[in-house]
């Protein structure tokens, strides 16, 4: 069993965000530069090393939806901004998530704008791991424009799951927009399939958002439930 998963399982919890990112990175899924810090001073050091702007995120096994408790601050451009954000997040969490065990804070490199997608895996009681793909924002939320595939996943399946959605035309490049890196997206879905096959303990994965660029992709936020 993967060490990260074994530890989380022993402690009966989901993977913390830095652990989820590490797991993704172990399977060569691109994640942003990030560091786990446990003090304001460490946060500043990490931010300067990463380069501004950065994002600060609370790390806690008790907080699943970080934004809801004011646990995320974005676009932090300076030492002062990082310090202020650190304090504010701590205060928010103390107030809105009383008693939550804090594992520290994550300093994450700012991700440039790209097309927002969602890639996920849930376990179907009859057919096992099922992968979901959709474009973020209104495509998923309002139009339910998502597509599914189950294991085993071929390259063709990984291509089809993307091409089947209406949002695909956005990735292909329409109205003067340049085409995005669909090949990298296909690669990511296949790597995710391998990750899921090799780690049957995982019940659910949510990569949201996954940013797609002209060249390359970035799994900005990931949730792994055991």
């Amino acid at each position: 069993m993967n060490e990260l998963i074994a530890r989380a399982k022993a402690e009966k919890r989901v993977l913390l965000e830095p652990e989820a990112m590490q797991l993704l990175a172990e399977y060569e899924l691109p994640v942003p530069t990030h560091s786990l810090v446990t003090s304001k001073e460490q946060a500043v050091v990490a931010a300067e090393k990463t380069g501004y702007p950065v994002v600060l995120k609370i790390v806690s096994k008790d907080i699943l939806h970080k934004s809801d408790v004011g646990g995320v601050k974005i676009g932090l451009n300076s030492k002062e901004a990082v310090e202020k954000a650190y304090e504010e997040i701590m205060e928010n969490v103390r107030e809105k998530a009383k008693g939550a065990v804090i594992g520290g804070m994550l300093v994450v490199a700012h991700a440039p704008q790209g097309i927002e997608c969602i890639v996920g895996m849930t376990k179907d009681p009859q057919f096992g791991p099922a992968f979901l793909f959709g474009l973020g924002g209104i495509f998923v939320e309002l139009l339910n424009d998502v597509s599914f595939r189950v294991l085993p996943l071929t390259k063709e399946d990984a291509e089809d799951i993307i091409k089947e959605t209406k949002g695909y035309s956005l990735l292909k490049g329409t109205r003067g927009q340049s085409p995005k890196d669909v090949e990298a997206l296909v690669g990511l879905i296949l790597k995710l399939a391998r990750l899921v096959e090799e780690n049957p303990e995982i019940e659910e994965i949510d990569i949201n958002p996954l940013l797609v660029y002209e060249k390359g992709i970035l799994a900005v936020d990931a949730r792994v439930i055991l």
Partner: peptide
């Protein structure tokens, strides 16, 4: 019967 998720069954059919 357990009808299950229709979207996932659809995916299985396609595959």
């Amino acid at each position: 019967s357990i009808a299950g998720s229709d979207q996932i069954f659809d995916a299985v059919c396609k595959q």
